[in-house]
Structure formats: structure tokens, C-alpha cells
């Protein structure tokens, strides 16, 4: 019995690790689903700004995924015989995200003024980022609730963060490169995003959950 229990525990930890890895890499929300493209294109010019945005996204996806999982599990699922939970969740998740981001801003301002200034304008900006809502929706589609939702949310945010950091690194070098006039700016960025996406898509299916 003891061995079995230990094994389930290891399995559980392993499954969490798999969720994390798949959310970050093989199912990278930006490079395989192409969500959250607006800030990805506009704030990836400098590494510093990209890092700020990336950290803010990790922060917000983790917390909104947890909040939305709780909302889904404790409000929508028990009522699913009476209400169209599947379509209603779209609206309720957006409301939840907007409220949580506001709350988060107040808490961060109170707890760590340094973090507040580091996140700065990015925190309110990502309320309307589709990657945040996307993460919550994919999460419930895959029935990841409880602690797994937190792990998934963190993974999805981290994946987005890694993608924008990679892009910012490339674009800083790109500034010195000789890009054809018609492709400068968003053009070349989208082409590079496509090539990066190929590299990420290739790993899809490698991790079996």
C-alpha cells in the first residue's frame, strides 16, 4: 500500500510537471495558437520592455487561471443542468479577469511599490489580452482544475514570456540587419514568428498527458 501511495504521489507530481512543460513548450499559447499577438508585435522591440510585459503576463495568467478554475468548479459546474455553462463561461471569465487584474494592481501597489513600478503600464494593458482569456478557456476545456489550473496558468504565461523574450532578442539584432524596405517592422517580425512557430509545433504530441 505504502509503495502504491508513494507511486501515486510521484505520478501526480510527474503529471503536474508534464502540464507545465506542455503548456510552456509544446502547446505554447503564442507560437502554436497565435494568441496575444498585439503586445507580442508592439512591445518586442526592446528586451527590457518585453521582459516587463512577459513577467506581467506570467503573473496574471497564473492568478486568473486559478480564479477562473474556482469559478468554473464551484459556480458553473454545479449549475450546469440549469444554465448554458459552456457559453456563459466566456462572458464570466472576461469579467473575472478584469476584476482580478484591478485587484492585483491594488495589491501590488500596496505590497511592493518596486514591483508595481516594474510592471507599470503593462498590468492594466493585459486585461484585454486574448492570451489571458485563451489560457483560461483551454484550461477548462482540458478539465484542469484545482492545483493543476495554477500550474497550467503559470506554464501558459511562461511560454508566452519565453516567446516574447526570444523575439525581443532577435529584433534587437534585427535593428542592425539589412531588411528589405517593404518587410521592415511587423512584416519581418511575423515571418520570424512563423519560423519560430514551426520549431515549437514540431514538438506537439511528444508529451502524452
Amino acid at each position: 500500500m505504502m509503495i502504491l501511495a508513494a507511486q501515486t504521489e510521484t505520478n501526480y507530481a510527474l503529471s503536474l510537471l508534464l502540464i507545465l512543460l506542455s503548456a510552456t513548450f509544446t502547446e505554447n499559447i503564442l507560437l502554436t495558437r497565435f494568441l496575444g499577438m498585439c503586445p507580442f508585435l508592439s512591445i518586442s522591440r526592446q528586451l527590457r520592455g518585453a521582459a516587463g510585459m512577459g513577467v506581467a503576463v506570467v503573473f496574471v495568467t497564473t492568478i486568473t487561471c486559478a480564479a477562473n478554475a474556482a469559478l468554473y468548479q464551484f459556480v458553473l459546474l454545479p449549475l450546469k443542468d440549469y444554465i448554458p455553462a459552456e457559453s456563459l463561461k466566456l462572458i464570466l471569465f472576461i469579467v473575472m479577469i478584469a476584476a482580478v487584474v484591478q485587484l492585483l494592481e491594488m495589491i501590488v501597489e500596496r505590497i511592493s511599490i518596486r514591483l508595481y513600478f516594474a510592471l507599470g503600464i503593462f498590468l492594466p494593458l493585459i486585461t484585454v489580452n486574448c492570451a489571458i482569456l485563451g489560457a483560461s478557456l483551454f484550461m477548462v476545456n482540458q478539465d484542469m482544475l484545482g492545483i493543476r489550473s495554477v500550474v497550467y496558468g503559470f506554464g501558459a504565461g511562461a511560454g508566452w514570456c519565453i516567446a516574447i523574450l526570444l523575439m525581443a532578442g532577435i529584433r534587437q539584432r534585427l535593428a542592425k540587419a539589412n531588411v528589405p524596405a517593404g518587410l521592415e517592422g511587423p512584416g519581418i517580425t511575423l515571418i520570424i514568428t512563423g519560423i519560430m512557430a514551426l520549431a515549437f509545433v514540431i514538438f506537439q504530441g511528444m508529451i502524452q498527458k
Partner: peptide
């Protein structure tokens, strides 16, 4: 009930 849930949450 849907409207109630939405309004309640908000």
C-alpha cells in the same frame, strides 16, 4: 438563472 449568475458574479 444565467442572468442571475452573471449579475451575481459582477
Amino acid at each position: 438563472i444565467s442572468v442571475g449568475v452573471t449579475c451575481g458574479l459582477m
